[in-house]
Design a protein around this nucleic acid. Sequence first.
RNA 1: GCCGGGGUGGCGGAACUGGUAGACGCAAGGGACUUAAAAUCCCUCGUUCCUCAAGAACGUGUCGGUUCGAUUCCGACCCUCGGCACCA
Length: 887
Amino acid sequence: MTREYNFREIEARWQETWEREKTFKAHDDSDRPKTYCLEMFPYPSGSGLHVGHLKNYVPMDAFCRYKSMAGFNVLHPMGWDAFGQPAENEAIKKGRNPRQMVPEYAANYKRTLKLAGCSYDWTREIDSSLPEYYRWTQWIFLLLYKKGLAYRDTAPINWCPSCKTGLANEEVKEGRCWRCDNPVEKRPMPQWFFKITAYADRLLDDLEKLHWTEGMKEMQRDWIGRSEGAKVEFKIQNSESCPEKGSPAQQANGSRIQVFTTRPDTLFGATFMVLAPEHHLVEDLTLPEKKAEVEAYIKKTQSETEIERLNTERTKTGVFTGSYATNPVNGEKIPIWIADYVMMGYGTGAIMAVPAHDQRDFEFARKFNIPIRMVFRSEGGPAGPEEMTQAIPDGGSMINSGQFDGLPNSKETISKFIKWLEQNQKGRGKVNYRLRDWLISRQRYWGAPIPMIHCPKCGIVPVPEDQLPVLLPNVDNYHPSGTGESPLANIPEFVNTNCPKCGGPAKRETDTMGGYACSSWYFLRFADPHNNDIFADHQKLGYWLPVDIYAGGAEHIRSHLLYSRFWTKVLFDEGYLNFTEPFLTLHNQGSLLAYTPGRKPRANENAESDGGEARLVDWIVLKPEEREAFPEDQIVWRWARMSKSKGNVVTPDEIAQKYGADSLRVYEMFMAPFEDDIQWTEEGINGSFRFVNRVWRWITTYQPVYKADWAAEIEQEDHLAVRSVRRKLHQTIKKVTDDMERFQFNTSVAALMELTNEVQEAFPVKDDVPAADYPCLVSEIIETLTLLMAPFTPHMSEELWQMLGHKGTTYKAQWPKSDLLIAANDEITLVVQINGKLRDRITVPADISDEELKKIALNSEQVKKYLVDLNIKKVVVVPKKLVNIVG
RNA sequence: GCCGGGGUGGCGGAACUGGUAGACGCAAGGGACUUAAAAUCCCUCGUUCCUCAAGAACGUGUCGGUUCGAUUCCGACCCUCGGCACCA
């Protein structure tokens, strides 16, 4: 009586039904508790979705379906991160206008997500490149500006010569552009920044509230990089060549150099100072006779890429400026050097160097013969600098440190130094961050225009809110200018405007906002995506937000999450939100790996890689055209992340065609935990396909036996002979429910497989109509299994559900409840150990007492033969589980 | 170098708060059905010893510790993946 499992027809039909019935529409008013589940919205690329992308979408979809069945009002929206460089670069490559291209690509993504059976509320679809969306991105920019959190500054920025635009600090990975992987340069440019550093402590402290893994929190902490210490002022001594007067710059700066140090306790050991070559005082501090040398050094460091400078292995270099400073604690005259191991971007760009207790300073001092002075010493350690082979970071007690001598080298002593500095006005306690302000300006076309106007009279004036959005003009040529200016600068109709303040002629800001601006608040928009009066209605935000479960790639941990958390806090401070953290729980999905042919690099391929001594490559993917002629025995196969560029992608379309979307879903959830990578194999998906088929076959076989009112009569039915099946059923309900809550899809599927195996053994699939021995139990299994499968195989479950005579969708059906009495085992396996070694397993009643357990264990034939020459010292009994006989 | 995750059969992976290691699946081998194949169903499947069985020993990266008992806890080390890195 089995029916054919025609998955192609079934899946297409139910996808249409869901769309027609708006099954997944989230309602803003409901008695049910809400849950907001969100995947990071994708940039819809031209190559479309492959099965690897579904590693995120499919499990999250199963989770949403489960939550809906468990009684929640689920918000599960989707949109497109379409504004920014990836889309623009793609459009340039294809010679297309992003305005037309993006919707096409988005439509293809949407089609594929529907094909995979994903349950999105498409009425909330958003596209960050549409004016009705970016109007609010601009609005938030103005809000930040009003709060003094958006500012313009000319500073050396990370410049990607390939993308021809500036990059935020977070977008630089190992000195390379996160998008195109080319080395970045430093370039001074007037740019817009967001003052995220003002929120550094809150971004750090609030991590405590979140259900993120320790690893993810730690990454955010690392990136924020809080360190406590002191800011200390070193007076510049007038140089001997011009004894009485400092240069104008020296006077303007009060003739002082500010340094940040985490170790003010080592101040007495500071025997020189080092400034970053870019430090603004360098020019003034350089004596005429040192000028040539210093300038040559600066030139040399400028030509170094960020990558070269990041290399910690190389030896220290630097030059003496000829000037001296005064050590504030002991009045000593110490030389001022410049060296590239001091970075302008961290702290004040200047350090006090304590060679005895800092390894970098030690190396530098040894190389340039600068005195080394210990300021603490421990017993057994080196007695003096001449005995040192490396810096000693801490320990022992203070020496050579005036009134501090004898104190232990400890945190308390550091506090005493800071107090002393503050009392004597030589410095003060200071917290420093690695985090730098967020560079938002892009000299590119495809982004939200920064809503600012430059007026010759009034200066920088924000665009009034009622004039938003500042529309991105439609143009033919949107290529980067290459001059460093945005393409918008060449469009007079856009640039020329009137000052909102004085009405006079003025010019618009031509930079656009980087894509991260759009993605820093989209999760708020989903609560109320079509609102034209505000970015989202306060009440709706209050109902839906914050996001309960957020899932996405680990590559976004530092930038996107940091920026989103920052904006959320700003909007909270302004009273727009009633929560301070947007994403309560966070999951990072693993990737899908494909077995990929490659080859060893040729001799020249590593040597001349751009950017100097870059990473060593030991494997290069074979391009399809290259593979044809490549000798088979020289191919090196590896598991590599699926991506279009590697030519190893598998599309959902081809898999849905061959095995069905439901089998694909089961496979992606079953093969590994959510966070782990999956090695894609066709055999694997075939295994999932077999499982789905078995469920289908079993349920359709026994469907004639099904009675919808089984629940009323099942307690009267005598199914003692098959009670273990019913027990297994209820154990499985519990197992799957618990695992879903913990985001453990792989073990959920495994539990369903176990159940299916056991059910099939008790009620085999035969060709003839099965005997209806236990109609109520069979009905319970049919119904429960159909529903338990629904999150994993939604199409098949809908089909079966309808076949059983139910109206409506499984999405709104009630998730099965486990009856703990039925699930309870009436027998347990007693494990008998002797000295911790397994000797016997005995089946005993579940309600057995400890005494009986002990008795049974000692009487076991298996055990007895070991007991002959064993002097029993002790018997450990673990209730209802185990007996360990110790001799 | 620092921080974080992880090392379990031929493979992917299970094992709740210390208590039966290897669930579930893949691959492999054998068998049933079939003219045949596919599909399906049944059996075997960590290693070693023993002719087989019964049974035994070993076994969760390595070494050591705590414990009646350790994949699980502690210490040291090795490998691997991810993040950060002349961060003052």
